[in-house]
Nucleic acid binder design. Sequence first.
RNA 1: GGCGACGUGGCCGAGUGGUUAGGCAGCGGCCUGCAAAGCCGCGUACACCAGUUCGAUUCUGGUCGUCGCCUCCA
Length: 462
Amino acid sequence: MTLKLHDTLSSCTGAAGGDGPLRVYSCGPTVYDRIHVGNARPFVVAMTLRRHLIRQGRPVKVVINVTDVNDKIYAAARAAGIPSPDFAAEMTGAYIADTDRLGLGRPDVEPRVTGTMPAIIALIETLVESGHAYAADGDVYYAVASFPTYGALSRQRPDQLLEEGRVEVGDGKRSPLDFALWKARKPDEDAWWDSPWGPGRPGWHIECSAMAMAHLGERIDVHGGGLDLLFPHHENERAQSEGATGEPFVSSWLHNGMLRFSGEKMSKSVGNVARLADALDEWGAETLLLLFARAHYRSPMDYNDDTLAQARAAGDGLREALRALATAAGDGSGDAELTDEARRRAAAFDAALDNDLATPQALAELHQLAGAGNRALAAGAVSARAGDVVRASLLDRLEVLGLAGFGHSTAAPEDVRLLAQQRLEARAARDFARADMLRDEIAARGFAVRDAPDGFELVPTR
RNA sequence: GGCGACGUGGCCGAGUGGUUAGGCAGCGGCCUGCAAAGCCGCGUACACCAGUUCGAUUCUGGUCGUCGCCUCCA
């Protein structure tokens, strides 16, 4: 099985990675605020890829950085009245905590800009020495004209960009297209580092080149991030990295589509954001993960109550199937057919993910298996043993998507069981008014009661 | 204006030159005291206009529309 990914540079879908661990770098957040749901998408994509490969025993190394020095951080810290390093540390902690709640685990390395300063400065020095960069009054700029294929990744033409005249003209810049690798310290900036060019801090793009190379080497397999980072961020990263090494930097540039909120991109600058933590509070990790998985990572996707409710409903179906399989006690006449289908669907799930992380299709395989299980179960044809096998195979793949929690069932507490028992008795006495009242009471305590041949079943609501 | 992505049934979302993706919602039925869950049945969609073809949702050209980037942005 070969992993194929779509590469933005070539706009082709092709084999990703060779021998050795798949080296994946994905642009993480700038921690000037709590992250929103859109910020979580590249994290989910990278971690899904990681989990998919790990489940199959294929080696992978995922690096997602944290940008903890930046203009916006200075500004936000100032507004909050605390030192910017403290502010950045606090927000970094919040980012870790928020993404932890998704239940996808952590990347292998999560480097901070502030912890990578020597590598960043060394990379800038290399670029200066090789003529790709020049110093000017304590700033250092990348000379875009020195990189012939600048614009190839984002399909921008340098002459066209210049014509637009929208690029910022810096004081010491030779060309308006040039961008800062190092920025001299400004008087009100309370975090800075010494460098050959004087005190200051790195520009936005150089950090990612340095961190990727520091942890994955000069050539990496996959570089991910939001489509909105394509230009200028990734274009500049490519120019820096390849300028420094003279070699191709990335085999597959992976760009995820934007989340749309009310028809527009969810973005802090637009102001239409839903914080990840709030979304998790309201909908839970599983519904959010399912929402992401239901759309291909490159497609734009709508984030709203309707799409979330649909994701939740789809999840409920899988949850039900798992619950039912756990209670299988049939004659086993359908075992062979069902376990065979489970094998086929599981393989198809893997193949779908190998095909440019086609999560909607992968999910469809699971839904089909769930349906097959329900049908066989309804026919009383599934033995307890086969039920377990199929259930385990379903959970095994759901785990890749972070959805193994669908298999957990909350046992009803004693008081709820007592109410259900009383309802059973009321029904036996044909006191249906009382039975319905007890059902409402049970519902108020978070459980749905279902009649079963041998009594009742209590299922947690949500 | 430049560059790019995309337009599939009520919604989400695969896919293919001629044969049912799947899910959710909806309707009818089975089951149930009523439900819930599950099962059975039901929708012939592919933006528009031309062209190629025996045949196009799938190929070609054009039109329209949506979104993104071109500026901090996942």
